[in-house]
Design a binder for these strands. Structure first.
Lengths: 178, 178
DNA sequence: TAGATTGTTAATCGATTAACAATC
DNA sequence: TAGATTGTTAATCGATTAACAATC
């Protein structure tokens, strides 16, 4: 279904070890669990979310942090209109409380749902508090300015442009449209 | 800055043609425009968004469709609580109007911000209306059931798990944590 | 002409695929 | 023993890198 060959699956699994039994097959349940362990999905690492605008709220509401290796323990914003709101079971805290909160709960990871204008300073604040793993929704490239960060970027604009390219390849612009 | 080599850039550009002048260089502004043309970023293809829940509203509000090759011309939902709301400059329409609207405006692309339970039937409805290009935020794999679709998937869960894996590689679980 | 930079071909590297041994 | 399926090595393929010719 995923368009992978049997060879490729065997090769990929063998990067991490042997999980099957020759002549018999794989124990699917056990393999599934092993892969989860390799990915660290059972770690429940404390994580904070910065920026509770439309995007941040959506992420906080929709994502299943618990089954992805994380536990969302705090949501922060600097707008008086948003601070105090409850999202899921968390009350949005004032960004000014970030230092105290991080010292108390020592998260190592953060979701960045902030405008790129404040991305640098926010990242710097977090790094000083020991947070160096980022799920980055901002348009700012953290890895340029910070050493030793672990970043996973989500740039939805790139994704939409990729779709545009695929469509443009399959159905090219006609001369009239130019 | 993007960690690409000069060789790689030249090779990649030459997949589409020669845009520079030997001995002189590239005209950056012209090259930028050419790349946009290749990606079809100036097409303003009509696009509808299906599902105006948290995620759908966020996408509709945040994304710059116009500079990515699309024009968002309609937002649809089936909840009476959401239909009638205004997002940006669009009023959310009842999903029942989808057929009439598509016949009138003939969009070819759609954003799917719907639960996976209704993803199949919604896709089928859209395909019958001539919409076969999808920006898919649902957990459902369209390409399995539909031939000739162009799909760009956004699976945020995968992205978060990728971050988990990277962290788990860099900072492995200790035995105590197991 | 010398220096610089692109276009293009060749060499290298890594990933995918195929083949086969090992094992149930 | 025969069939099936994994683990692992070898062959193939494609992408990245390097080299060099072309051109300003």
């Amino acid at each position: 279904m995923m368009q992978l060959t049997a060879s490729q699956i065997r090769q990929d699994l063998n990067c991490f070890g042997g999980f099957g039994q020759q002549g018999y097959g794989y124990n699917v349940a056990a393999l599934h669990k092993e892969i989860g362990n390799i990915m660290g999905l059972d770690r429940h690492m404390p994580m904070v979310l910065i920026g509770a605008g439309n995007l941040g709220r959506t992420i906080a509401r929709h994502m299943d942090f618990d089954s992805s290796g994380f536990r969302l323990i705090g949501i922060f914003d600097n707008s008086v209109h948003i601070v105090g709101q409850t999202i899921r079971d968390l009350v949005v805290r004032d960004a000014a409380e970030l230092e105290d909160f991080c010292r108390a709960h020592t998260p190592r990871a953060a979701v960045l749902c902030i405008p790129k204008e404040v991305a640098f300073e926010t990242t710097q604040r977090l790094m000083e508090l020991g947070v160096n793993c980022f799920w980055n929704f901002s348009h700012y490239d953290l890895s340029l300015d910070f050493e030793g960060v672990i970043v996973e970027n989500v740039h939805l604009g790139d994704s939409l442009m990729t779709l545009s390219y695929q469509i443009n390849e399959a159905y090219p612009k006609t001369e009239n449209q130019k």
